[in-house]
């Protein structure tokens, strides 16, 4: 059993490396394998153009994809276990919409003060507003979950919260200038390509910090597999856990939404793939598992969009087309679990 899990991890790491390699090499401009190999091993790359493309475009894009994939998958995993709901995830339950509203408010209003503030402040403000918007929805959901036990009602509530925030966003968009609308619409399609330089540093530090914090949740999450009452009887301080989980999940989902747009379905799909591939619900395995699988999933999507296949389709279109069939298959096989 243990050996099987290690083997699966090994196989996934190989797939992960392949994805990274193809994304470095392929794209609008093809970079020969030997150049990529030299680049990875830290040797000098003869062509300055190749080096710039690799270092300034493709590495940030890959890093962003890895961070976004890991962050959303962990957020999804924490939410699914906490709510005991197999369909929970940052997008499905409206956390991403909440973040989107935060970001929209920031984009539309910051232009008023922006002249007076240094540029890095803008990046932090963007992340902070994304996190803030997401945590408000999450707080509302947890309040709902403490009053209603039905899994379906919770999902519907999440959808409704999502639609409500989208409504506010539409009002904001309707009242903005053409440039802001364009920025916002492009952002809504989702992309790993817009984060670079300082922004990437902010994104990286925030996500890595939140993932490290999420690892602290492994033991409590395992006890929550039996439900809140049993977790409590095994010594878990539920209210403290709840606030910790809200903050971490909102940081993970909010920062990704702020920088990459509302990436859809990934957070719901990956935990299921992980449980299916690793054949366990143990979070000691699932936590590293979803980090790896989430990264691979976003790199595959990026390969379709701009790498190996270079189809030039918006990221969220690919996420939807890849994610929805997996969710449908899952729901089909698990109808029983969703009934209660």
């Amino acid at each position: 059993m243990k050996r099987n899990i290690s083997l699966v991890f090994l196989a996934l790491i190989i797939v992960f490396c392949m994805m990274v390699f193809t994304l470095l090499s392929m794209g609008p401009i093809y970079i020969p394998f030997e150049v990529v190999t030299r680049f990875i091993s830290g040797q000098e790359v003869a062509s300055q153009t190749y080096f710039d493309i690799l270092w300034q475009i493709r590495v940030p894009k890959i890093l962003t994809g890895i961070l976004a994939g890991s962050a959303l998958s962990i957020a999804g995993l924490v939410m699914q276990t906490y709510f005991g709901n197999p369909l929970a995830g940052p997008f499905v339950l409206g956390i991403s919409s909440g973040s989107a509203l935060g970001v929209a408010l920031w984009v539309m209003t910051s232009s008023i003060f922006l002249g007076a503030l240094p540029e890095y402040f803008n990046d932090y403000g963007l992340v902070a507003s994304g996190i803030f918007g997401g945590s408000i929805i999450l707080l509302l959901l947890m309040l709902t979950a403490s009053k209603v036990t039905s899994k379906v009602v919770l999902l519907v509530m999440g959808l409704l919260f999502g639609h409500f925030t989208s409504g506010i966003i539409s009002v904001l968009v309707a009242k903005s200038g053409a440039q802001e609308i364009k920025t916002f619409l492009l952002w809504g399609l989702g992309s790993f390509e817009r984060v670079s330089g300082n922004q990437l540093l902010v994104f990286l530090s925030v996500v890595v910090f939140a993932i490290l914090c999420a690892l602290l949740l492994i033991k409590p999450l395992n006890s929550l597999l039996l439900g809140e009452q049993y977790a409590k009887s095994m010594g878990l301080n539920i209210s403290r856990f709840k606030y910790f989980a809200i903050v971490i999940t909102a940081i993970l989902a909010g920062s990704v939404t702020a920088f990459c747009g509302p990436i859809i379905f990934l957070g719901t799909v990956i935990p299921h793939l992980a449980r299916w591939i690793f054949k366990t619900s143990d979070h000691k395995v699932l936590m590293p598992g979803v980090i790896l699988l989430g990264s691979i999933f976003s790199l595959i999507a990026e390969n379709i969009a701009s790498g190996f296949f270079s189809l030039n389709i918006p990221l969220n279109a690919i996420m939807g087309l890849m994610g929805v069939p997996i969710i449908v298959v899952f729901m089909w096989s698990k109808q029983k679990d969703l009934r209660s």
């Binding site: 197999p86 395992n222 054949k279 619900s281 679990d337």
Partner: peptide
């Protein structure tokens, strides 16, 4: 309770938490 993909031994082991 529903505990997908969790063995009997794993459920019992949670008691040691």
């Amino acid at each position: 309770i529903h505990v997908p993909k969790f063995s009997v031994a794993e459920v019992i082991a949670l008691g040691r938490q």
